[in-house]
Computed example of a mutant assay.
Amino acid sequence: MKILLVDGTVIGTKTGVILEQVKDYIEEVNSEYTLEIIHLSNYEHQFVDGRPFENYNDDMKLLVSKFDQADGFIIASPIFQGSIPGVLKNTFDFLHPKSMRYKPVSIVANGGTYQHHLVIENQLKPILDYFRCLVTPNYVYTHKSHFDENNVIIDNDVHDRLRELARVFVQYAEMSKNLSKEPMDVR
């Protein structure tokens, strides 16, 4: 299975650090997956504005292709001003609704206040529900106090929660192998 770990911002490093740790924990549970971390900061972004898809730049086409080809996702997002970054929402806006259908997704996020964990519930989960993703129930939210001055995760509870997230994600990934990505004909 090809798993895409998405660093959903163009600034900062904490979400990338969290993804590296999740990648390690997934590899401990199942070393047969192909895991790729992508940083949205490595792409030249264009706004979704209704033009035909072929008129967007090669970076946007590559990004959409990576999502289409992936079998599962770990989405990492910082929380800025009580919201997900616009670049992450814009990336979702490029995707066809079937791109993520019935594929497993886990969420990790970080923010400067403890209350911003609700952004996961109020913004990310509804977007992923629209795509009909298999969202794992155990997202992990981190706070700046969980990192040292070099952005290393120093909180043991965060490590335990990331290990559990990886374990549950792998179970969802295995379950998704047997789900058709096409809707059933209910006529």
Rank of each mutant, 00 (worst) to 15 (best):
M100N: 06
V135G: 01
P78Y: 10
I37D: 04
K181I: 12
L128I: 02
V87F: 00
K103G: 06
S145Y: 12
Q69L: 14
V6T: 03
V168A: 01
T136H: 04
V108G: 02
G50N: 06
H45E: 12
L128Y: 00
I153S: 09
T142R: 05
F131W: 05
R167W: 15
E20Y: 10
G50P: 07
N42E: 09
K125Q: 11
V170F: 11
Y141W: 05
F169H: 13
K98C: 11
L88A: 03
G8V: 02
K98M: 10
Y25K: 13
I75Y: 01
F73Y: 12
K23D: 10
V186E: 15
V168C: 08
I84Q: 09
Q46F: 00
R101N: 10
N138E: 13
Q123D: 13
Q123W: 01
L40W: 04
R132H: 11
F147L: 08
E36T: 08
H116L: 12
D160N: 15
F73I: 02
L5I: 05
Q69I: 12
L88Q: 04
K98H: 14
K103L: 09
Y130W: 12
I74T: 03
L5W: 13
M100P: 03
Q81N: 14
N110Y: 04
L124S: 03
P183D: 14
A166I: 07
K14A: 07
V64N: 11
G8S: 05
S176P: 07
Q123G: 08
S99G: 09
D185K: 15
G82D: 13
I26Q: 01
D59F: 04
G111K: 04
I120L: 07
D93L: 13
V87Q: 05
V48G: 05
F53I: 07
D68F: 07
A173M: 05
L165H: 14
I18C: 03
E36R: 03
E36H: 00
H143G: 04
S65T: 12
I153E: 03
I38R: 05
S65Y: 13
F53P: 06
M184A: 15
Y43Q: 03
M175A: 14
L63N: 08
K103A: 07
V29P: 08
E44K: 15
N138Y: 10
P78R: 09
I107P: 00
A76M: 02
A109L: 01
R132M: 13
Q171Y: 13
V140M: 04
V87N: 08
K125R: 12
Y56V: 00
Q115C: 12
G111Y: 06
I127G: 05
E121M: 05
I18Y: 00
E121P: 00
K103C: 05
T34C: 09
F67L: 02
E182L: 15
A70M: 05
K66I: 07
T113L: 08
Q21Y: 07
H143A: 10
V64K: 13
P85S: 08
L118M: 13
R51G: 03
